[in-house]
Amino acid sequence: MTQIIAFNSFSNNLGTRVLGQEIRMQIESILDSKDFVIFDFEGVEFVSHSFSDECFGKLLLKLPFEELKSKSTFINASDLVKKTIALAINDRLKASLAY
């Protein structure tokens, strides 16, 4: 089964760690149920690095990057949103290699 998280239902500007954590908990629940998740960023203009780290970067503390990639996809994200999320994920990947 596939589930869609419409990020614009939260706001068109996503900036806080608190919101990132709230959404990450939903994502973890979906991934635990073995469903595929689509991250839909239609209408979202901005995401902060701290939101991206909390929402997506910390997912890597629970599952490997390749597994996350195989269980999810991003749609309708602007270049700025994509770059911010990719930076947060890359920072987490680098940090995990440092251990």
Score class of each variant (00 low, 15 high):
93 L>Q: 11
88 A>R: 06
75 I>M: 09
60 L>G: 04
9 S>K: 13
77 A>C: 06
55 C>F: 11
56 F>H: 00
95 A>W: 15
91 D>W: 07
65 F>E: 08
20 G>K: 02
50 S>Q: 13
19 L>I: 04
49 H>Y: 10
54 E>Q: 07
21 Q>I: 13
25 M>L: 06
55 C>G: 00
35 D>F: 11
52 S>D: 14
54 E>K: 12
72 S>P: 05
38 I>P: 05
74 F>C: 11
14 L>V: 03
15 G>T: 04
94 K>V: 10
5 I>Q: 04
18 V>L: 05
22 E>L: 14
29 S>R: 12
75 I>L: 01
76 N>K: 10
33 S>I: 04
29 S>K: 09
13 N>M: 09
75 I>T: 14
32 D>P: 04
45 E>A: 14
37 V>I: 13
6 A>Y: 07
54 E>I: 08
87 L>F: 07
13 N>D: 07
4 I>V: 15
24 R>C: 09
36 F>M: 04
79 D>G: 14
40 D>V: 05
81 V>C: 07
96 S>Q: 14
66 E>I: 03
19 L>G: 03
69 K>D: 14
27 I>P: 12
62 K>D: 12
7 F>W: 08
3 Q>N: 04
58 K>P: 09
33 S>L: 08
92 R>D: 03
3 Q>E: 15
94 K>Q: 11
67 E>G: 02
98 A>P: 14
92 R>W: 03
94 K>T: 07
52 S>N: 11
54 E>N: 13
79 D>C: 08
28 E>R: 12
34 K>C: 08
23 I>N: 02
39 F>Y: 10
12 N>C: 15
65 F>H: 03
29 S>C: 02
10 F>C: 07
96 S>C: 10
24 R>N: 00
18 V>Q: 12
35 D>A: 14
79 D>H: 13
65 F>A: 10
31 L>P: 03
31 L>R: 04
14 L>Y: 07
14 L>K: 07
32 D>Q: 06
28 E>Q: 15
80 L>T: 12
67 E>P: 08
58 K>E: 10
89 I>D: 02
29 S>L: 07
84 T>C: 01
50 S>H: 06
77 A>V: 00
60 L>V: 00
5 I>A: 03
84 T>Y: 00
26 Q>N: 12
22 E>C: 05
69 K>N: 15
2 T>P: 06
13 N>L: 13
94 K>A: 10
6 A>F: 07
99 Y>V: 15
1 M>D: 09
44 V>S: 10
95 A>I: 10
59 L>K: 03
90 N>C: 10
25 M>Y: 10
61 L>V: 02
64 P>Y: 13
61 L>D: 07
88 A>F: 08
42 E>N: 14
